[in-house]
C-alpha cells in the first residue's frame, strides 16, 4: 500500500537530492553552452569538493559548510586556470581534442586524490547527521535540508547573475552566438574561462553539500557524478540552465522513489533507465526545443 506521508517524504527527499544534481548539471550545461564541449572532468570537480571538505575536517575540524566558504572562491580560480592552461590553447583544434583533454584531466584529478588520500572511502561526520525536522507526518533530514538550502541559494545567485548583470548577459550572448558576441566587443575567450570557473565552483559546491550524505572514493565517485551530470543535462535538454534544473530534480525523484519502492541497491540504475527512456522517446530532452545548430 502506498502510504501518503511516506510518499511525500520520499518525494521531498528526491527533490532535495535532485537539487544537488541540478547544481551539478547546471555547471556542465553552462560550460557546454558557452564552450560547446562536454567536460568529462565535471564529476571529478564534484569529488574535489568532497575531498576538500574531508581535508578541512581532518586538519581544522571544519563543518563542510564552513569549508564551502573557502572552497567556493578557490574552485572558481582553479577552474579559470584550468581553462586557460588546458582548454584555451586547443580551442581551435577539432572538438575531440577538448573531450580528450577533459578526460585526461579527470584521470589526473582522480589519481592525485588516490595518491593523497588513499583508496578507502571517505566522508565527513557532522554532529547533525541524523537530526530531522518534522513537518506534519513528514520527517526531513537536516543534512538534506541544508543541501537543499545551499543549492537553492547557489541557483538563485546564478539566475540573478545571468539575468540581471552585464557580465551575465555577455555570458548568455556568447552561449547563443559566439561570433555575434565577439563582433559587439565581448572577449569571448575571457567569458569561456569565467564560465569554466563558474562550472567548477558549482560542481565543488555540490560535492561539499553531499559529503555528509555519502562516501567518496577517488576515481569511482567522479565517474558516477560525471555520468549523473550528463543524465541530468540530457534529461532536460543540453545547453539550457532551466532544463538542467528540471532534469536534476527529476533524476533525484526517480532515484529516491525507485530505491524506496523497488530494490534500493539499484538506485543509480533507475536514473539511467529514465535517461534511456527519454533518449528513446524524446531525444531533444524533456524540456528541450528542437536542437538548433549555431
Amino acid at each position: 500500500m502506498l502510504d501518503l506521508a511516506i510518499f511525500i517524504q520520499n518525494l521531498a527527499n528526491g527533490l532535495l537530492i535532485g537539487g544537488v544534481y541540478a547544481l551539478i548539471g547546471v555547471g556542465l550545461t553552462l560550460v557546454f553552452g558557452v564552450m560547446r564541449t562536454i567536460n568529462f572532468a565535471h564529476g571529478d570537480f564534484v569529488v574535489l569538493g568532497m575531498y576538500g571538505a574531508v581535508l578541512f575536517d581532518l586538519v581544522f575540524g571544519f563543518d563542510p559548510y564552513l569549508s564551502l566558504l573557502i572552497a567556493l572562491p578557490v574552485a572558481f580560480v582553479v577552474g579559470m586556470v584550468v581553462e586557460r592552461a588546458i582548454l584555451a590553447p586547443i580551442a581551435d583544434a577539432p572538438a575531440e581534442s577538448s573531450l580528450l583533454a577533459t578526460l585526461g584531466l579527470s584521470l589526473i584529478i582522480g589519481n592525485l586524490l588516490l595518491l593523497t588520500f588513499g583508496g578507502e572511502p571517505r566522508s565527513v561526520q557532522v554532529p547533525y547527521a541524523s537530526d530531522t525536522v518534522r513537518i506534519g507526518e513528514v520527517n526531513l533530514s537536516v543534512v538534506l535540508l541544508a543541501a537543499g538550502a545551499a543549492t537553492t541559494a547557489m541557483i538563485g545567485a546564478l539566475y540573478w547573475f545571468l539575468e540581471r548583470t552585464e557580465r551575465g548577459r555577455a555570458v548568455r550572448a556568447t552561449a547563443e552566438n559566439r561570433l555575434g558576441a565577439e563582433l559587439v566587443g565581448i572577449d569571448t575567450r575571457r567569458v569561456q574561462s569565467f564560465v569554466f570557473g563558474m562550472g567548477t565552483a558549482l560542481a565543488v559546491t555540490a560535492g561539499v553539500t553531499l559529503i555528509p550524505l555519502l562516501f567518496a572514493t577517488p576515481t569511482f565517485t567522479g565517474a558516477i557524478f560525471t555520468l549523473k551530470a550528463f543524465v541530468v543535462t540530457v534529461l532536460g535538454g543540453l545547453g539550457r540552465v532551466g532544463a538542467a534544473i528540471g532534469g536534476g530534480l527529476l533524476l533525484g525523484v526517480v532515484e529516491v522513489l525507485g530505491a524506496s519502492y523497488f530494490l534500493s541497491e539499484y538506485r543509480d540504475a533507475y536514473g539511467l533507465l529514465a535517461f534511456l527512456l527519454v533518449l528513446l522517446l524524446r531525444p531533444e530532452g524533456l524540456f528541450g526545443k528542437t536542437v538548433k545548430r549555431v
Binding site: A173, A181, K292
Partner: peptide
C-alpha cells in the same frame, strides 16, 4: 547571416550591442 542572439529579446540584443 546576422548572428543575432535568437532567444534573447530584441531589446536585449540591442543592449548587448552596447557592452563596451
Amino acid at each position: 547571416g546576422r548572428q543575432l542572439f535568437p532567444n534573447m529579446s530584441v531589446r536585449e540584443n540591442l543592449l548587448v550591442g552596447a557592452t563596451l
